[in-house]
Each structure stands twice: as C-alpha cells, then as structure tokens.
Amino acid sequence: MQNIDWEVSETFNSGSYVMRGLPEKIGLIDAPFKKSIVKKYMWHFWGDIPDGELTVLAIREGSNEIVPALIVPSPEEERFVWTYDSPGGPNNGADASLPSNMQLDKKGKWALLVYLGEKYFDNIVVEVN
C-alpha cells in the first residue's frame, strides 16, 4: 500500500471509448464514481493476461482498510464480493474484457488493486464524488 501512486489514473482512447487506467495494460470505460451508488463498469485488459477470476481490492487514500468494491446484483439484496468471473474475449480494442458492478462508499481517491487468478495485475486510481 505504501507504493501506491495516488494520482488519479490517466485517461486514454481505445476503440470508440475513453478509458481510465494504464494504456495497453488495464482500463475501465471512464465513468464517474459516485459515493454509495452501484454502477456497471467494463474492465479491459491488454497483453500477457494471467488466467483466472478477477479480484478487486479497494483502498481509500489515507486508510489502511482493504474493502471489496465488486457488487453482485440480486433482487433480494446486493452484496459485496471480492471476486468475479474470468475475463472474456476482446472488446473495444482490448485483448480481454469483463463487465462488473462496483460501489465505493466514501468520497475521495481510491486505488483498485486488480488480481487475475493469483497474480497481481495492476491498479487504477479513481476519484469518488
């Protein structure tokens, strides 16, 4: 956690979309994060992509608490989860992609630490309003 660069991740173009993340490695279609609002986000991956399910650990700047950001929608009750499915095929210029629902419950900068299978892949820093 000490090695996180807390600058909000850059934006870049891929396909017909603006992404936020690291060009040619990892990105989300750039959409605002609003505190405590569940929203669908499309993950995109490039390059040597490890096999395995997507796991996202969320850390807010100034905190050492690691929380889940992924949400499983349910008619009864939405619930936070650590892990989603494995990425699927190419999409929007990326080598692999995966839709997910996410929610972050406090304003500020958040680092989304991304693992595929057992391997750390990279992180994206977002601003939650």
Rank of each mutant, 00 (worst) to 15 (best):
W82K: 13
E77H: 09
E24R: 14
D105Q: 14
A96G: 02
A94W: 08
K109Q: 05
E78I: 05
A58W: 02
P32F: 09
L113R: 08
S86V: 03
V38H: 12
A111G: 00
T83A: 05
V56D: 00
H44C: 11
N91L: 15
F33T: 08
M42K: 15
P90A: 15
V72N: 14
I124W: 01
A69D: 04
I66D: 03
V8Q: 11
G21H: 06
S16I: 06
R79D: 04
K109S: 05
F45T: 04
R79M: 11
R60K: 14
P99W: 02
V38L: 07
A94V: 07
N123W: 10
F45Q: 03
W110L: 01
F33R: 02
G27D: 03
L22E: 13
E76R: 12
K25I: 07
M1L: 11
D95K: 05
E77D: 12
G89R: 07
N3L: 13
P90Q: 15
L98V: 03
S100A: 12
L70N: 02
D122M: 04
W46G: 02
S74Q: 12
V81P: 05
I59A: 09
W82I: 02
G21W: 06
G52V: 01
D51P: 11
P87R: 07
S86R: 10
I49D: 00
K107H: 09
A96V: 02
K34A: 10
L98R: 01
N13K: 15
I124R: 02
D51E: 15
E76W: 09
V125K: 00
W82Q: 08
K34C: 06
T11Y: 07
L104Q: 01
D122N: 11
W110G: 01
G88Q: 07
S16M: 08
A69S: 14
E76C: 07
I66N: 08
D48L: 10
A96M: 02
D30F: 15
E78Y: 13
K119T: 14
N64W: 02
A58Q: 04
K35N: 13
S86C: 10
F121Q: 05
